[in-house]
Amino acid sequence: MDKDRAREIAAAEGLTKLDEKQLAQSVASGRELAEKLPKDLHWSEEIALIFRLPTPKDTGR
């Protein structure tokens, strides 16, 4: 399964010069990390700040 996913990623990302084993290892490692993420994150409670406009204080206006 990891090898299939690795092939998909390699094709999508243009990572064709890489050893398939390396990407398969990345897939396994990524899945392991994802499993450790908490399952109770709620859309209204943990809002990730990833964009912020300058405030009037920032721009001096």
Partner: peptide
């Protein structure tokens, strides 16, 4: 670095 390619 490659590990990041496999994180959704």
């Amino acid at each position: 670095i490659l590990d990041g390619a496999a994180v959704s």
